[in-house]
Amino acid sequence: MTTPAPVPARPRRQIWSIGGGKGGIGKSLLTASLGYQLAKMGKRVILVDSDLGGANLHTCLGLAAPERTLGDFIRRRAERIEDVLVETGIPLLRLISGASDFLAAANIKYPQKVRVLNRIRALEVDVVLLDLGAGTSYNIIDFFLVSDVGLLTVVPEPTSIENAYRFIKSALYRRFRNAVQNDEVRQLIEAALDQKNPHGIRTPLDLLATVEREHPGEAQILKNEMAAFRPQFVVNQVREPADAGIGHQLVAACARHLGVRTTYAGFVHYDEAVWRSVRQRRLFMVDAPRSRAAEDITRLVRGLVQGETLTLPW
């Protein structure tokens, strides 16, 4: 009797999403750069412009607006998601463009969303990068939650960080809602989304304490969800050393005041080389591979692939 030869384990394909809650903080450029660097490392990469209302990932790559987009797939004008895949001209890097031609796609219904997510998961690639739009709509949150790696982009500005906290809370409460069956607890979760709720719940920790008090049997579900939710911060447009330190502060603040265990994936410097490339609709990773920002991206991707994060020196 012979034993079948073991099938070599194929690294599982991964979905990384790039969110952050606020517009104009460099999510699309970051997505394109991460994708470029991953492809350069030999990974088969597909960029998905999930910013269905304001897609511009193609512009970051110097491409004209593709004729076939995710919107065509959602509206079933394209049967297979592969039919809307576009070559970028960079080996191993392909793109599924967003639905700039179809604004209503920004409000896709749940079954359509499931269809998109399932097809994305089934793609023959190593890494799928989802460029999420701004805001905290359910579409964006659901794309974020389905990811293996959830990156939260911030820039060192109060508004960006405020939106990132809002994004974290919205995503966590969405997880809670999906996990909890008890109607009264679900109502508490709904109420908690309003910062001025009558229960005085301002943070996930407040919510947990309320559930522990009023529905102790359900609290463990929330604790499990909090433990499993591990977004990673990327600080973009760093101009001075203190800016890079903000990532550590965000991690500590989330742990202490929200009860969420985030990590700090890395930072990218503000760089004139990036600005110059953007103006020419070219990717700075190609044009200025030795620029500070390009080196930051290289370091960031290496850390993400190896599962390393930045930690405080003590």
């Binding site: 060192p156 500005e157 109060p158 960080i161 906290y165 550590h248 502060q249 500590a252």
Partner: peptide, 17 residues
């Protein structure tokens, strides 16, 4: 670290607390 994080000019905590 924590003096900076909770400081007057900190962007990390102003909207949180």
């Amino acid at each position: 670290f924590f003096s900076g994080m909770y400081g007057e000019e900190s962007v990390a905590t102003y909207s949180l607390l």
